[in-house]
Design a protein around this nucleic acid. Structure first.
Lengths: 190, 190
DNA sequence: GTCTATATCTTGATAGAC
DNA sequence: GTCTATCAAGATATAGAC
């Protein structure tokens, strides 16, 4: 485990901060404290807060896309894939405080750049696309119970996952997440 | 239509601002501008921003509770009640920018008082309680299709509604809300 | 109830030395 | 790459006149 370069370190700290407290809820001072550098030094790596946020969202999209690919590669049935994605969202809650980056940014939508809002919409499209394909496969192989309208299933499920994150975070209790997705898990037959 | 007193006016302005931009996204200056008074005058009505937020959340809980009572009084079947609640959430999106107050506050959870977080959790309990009863009635009178586990249905549906708000707001397109709740609406048979 | 004036703090960002 | 020093703007909040 080599030591991370400062830029990556800042991205990691910022991602956690943003997902815990929102775009308007963390400052360069917070990042500097954790990173152990002065806040002015942050501008060397990311000239503005907007630049940092765009970089964060780019990395997040890639990470989640990669997670979806991994899930596809390591699970045979659509039902197992859906279960795995639910597990991924569950794990990303961490100690119950880190909601999805896209959700954390949503509240501050009005003060964000068009570029960033575009990336947030792009993130949802990635997720909905993957979910739609998975629901279609689940209807085909019989591993996911329920309707055949995969497009609506996908949008409903993403909304449910994001809402489940919020409920769990407010309560600081991951069981709220589990309760919200319980029926969805029951639909995954194998 | 008599003119509103300043305190109510401030609550209205603050509710819209908070639901559009989050707790850290609006300031006394914003409220003062719209209300047509100086920002220092706000402290006469609400000593601190925390006081204002608590008052907002109290009013919000009462309003939504009242809406649920109205829905119960004016719809015979559980399915019709569920449809009406979905319509209520849909209408509360306004032009697509005003998400649920509780969701708007969630992002800033870490910087909020324990009192306020408690009220947010209380709000969800109100909604989940109402939803659970409605799903139970729906299973009884056959007006809502699907499982009999009303408690899980309730938590899943609240999460879905909140997530649907976020998706619609990011896109500024209420059709994202409609798509997310489409299958839910289909389950309401009468 | 609302005003002016002010205090104090934090924010994002820049300039320039090392 | 990181530092010190500094800036202008914006935040919440208070004191006291009217």
């Amino acid at each position: 485990m080599t030591k991370l370069d400062t830029k990556t370190q800042l991205l990691n700290i910022a991602e956690t901060a943003l997902r815990q407290r929102g775009f308007d809820g963390f400052s360069n001072a917070d990042l500097a404290d954790v990173a152990g550098i002065r806040k002015a030094s942050i501008h060397y790596h990311f000239p503005t807060k907007a630049d940092l946020s765009v970089a964060l969202m780019d990395r997040y999209c890639n990470t989640v896309q990669g997670a979806c690919d991994d899930i596809d590669a390591s699970h045979a049935s659509a039902g197992a894939r859906l279960r795995a994605l639910i597990g991924y969202y569950r794990a990303s809650l961490g100690d119950g405080s880190t909601i999805c980056l896209c959700v954390a940014l949503s509240t501050s939508r009005e003060s964000l750049s068009q570029e960033l809002v575009g990336k947030m919409i792009g993130f949802r499209q990635i997720m909905i696309g993957w979910l739609k394909v998975t629901f279609e496969q689940g209807a085909g192989d019989g591993s996911i119970e329920g309707g055949t309208q995969a497009g609506y299933e996908a949008k409903a499920m993403l909304a449910l996952l994001e809402g489940a994150h919020l409920a769990a975070r407010d309560d600081r209790d991951i069981r709220q997440f589990d309760a919200a997705v319980a029926l969805l898990l029951l639909r995954c037959k194998r």
